[in-house]
Each structure stands twice: as C-alpha cells, then as structure tokens.
Amino acid sequence: MSETKATLLKAPFELSYKYKRSSGPIMSQVFEGLAKKKILGSKSKANKVYAPAAEYDPHTREALTELIEVGPGGIIESWSWVHQPSNHHLIQTPFAFALIKLDGADTAMLHMISDCEKSDLAIGNRVKAVWSETPTESIADIQHFILDI
C-alpha cells in the first residue's frame, strides 16, 4: 500500500508449452506445398482465390477444397517498417512486415520483406518469395520476400 514505485516487486515470467496440432486435410496440403516451394491458395466456386489458403469461404461459408498455385511474386498492399527487430523476430536486421497480394490471388497475406531500405518500399511495388533451403512444412519455408523491380 505504501510501497513506492521503486520498491515494487518484479519478476521475469516465462510461459511456454508444446503441443501437437493437426493441420487438417486442406492446410496440410498447403504446408506440404510450401516445403516444395509452392504457394497454394484456395479457389471458391465464384473463382475467388484466397491466399493464405482457407478451409471455408468467409463470405459464403462454402467448404474450399480446390487449391491452386499462386505467386511466388506479388504486390505490396500495405507495409510497416520494423526499425529494431527484437529477439523473437525471424529477421534480425531492419525489415518490413507487409500484406502481399500474390499473383493469382484476390486476398493479401502477411509476410516479411527483407534486404531492402525503408525508402525502397511503396504500396504497389512488386516482390517475390525467397525460399528456405531447409524446409519445415511451415510458413517459414518462405524466408521472406524481396523487391522485384
């Protein structure tokens, strides 16, 4: 009650647990595709292509089972520069988080753009995927995107 700010107790906390999850029949194909350097999007009956892939159409609620390849190039739809990456970021030099609309897709996906200056970035600029050489069947199989001008 009478404790001043300087004497407040503080402690570092670490919350961590592992678990196993099933990606399900649709997303499993997408993750396996990433390991083969393919980005798969979901195509709806109305020919709308969702990338990242979705299991259900968020508008019509139809189950989305048809997967088609999109990218690996696309355009920047929005971006945010990270001046000082923290420990948990996958890239340790300044980079951008960006919404990238891949070629052939109608939606944008979140990923990182690296190996560029902040001043190089603009909405509408073209980017392309840089693939990991040690695939893990995860979104990290795309290491990041680079500018493709």
Binding site: F13, S16, S22
Partner: peptide
C-alpha cells in the same frame, strides 16, 4: 499431419 507447435511468451 500432426505438427509440433510451441507457445512461448516471456514477460516482466
């Protein structure tokens, strides 16, 4: 199909 996942959070 089953992938190992990890939740990790550090805070003060």
């Amino acid at each position: 199909d089953y992938r190992e996942s990890l939740i990790h959070l550090e805070y003060q």
